[in-house]
Amino acid sequence: MDGEEDPQLQDKKKKHDTESAADLERVTDYAEEKEINLRDVGDVLANLGQTVNAQQAARERELAQVKISKEDVELIMSEMEITKIKAERVLRENKGNVVQALVTLVNS
């Protein structure tokens, strides 16, 4: 048994190898889409209006109005090693107070 394996076992293994490879291959095969009964889709879709969170939008607007200094953003970016978008966001959320913003980040 040692070293030289049972040839049958080998065959089986090989077969298994190719079979599972073939199965995997089949995953990406092309398949024609099946058609279903055509229905009036307009009705259904009309009822499914997508909701926009009004509250969230108001908060965004409020944040956008906060004045922030460029130096503070840069300090936060370099000290906490985060992106500009994130740094600005935190600074805005803390009403432009750089120390407060940093404390928030250190605590997060």
Partner: peptide
Amino acid sequence: LQLKPGQRASWIGYAISNHLLKDYTVAFK
């Protein structure tokens, strides 16, 4: 879904997208 309402995947795909966005009502309908 609008273009091809006759295909299963159109419906399922739209449902899944709503489910992933936690818009359960739309997904269910």
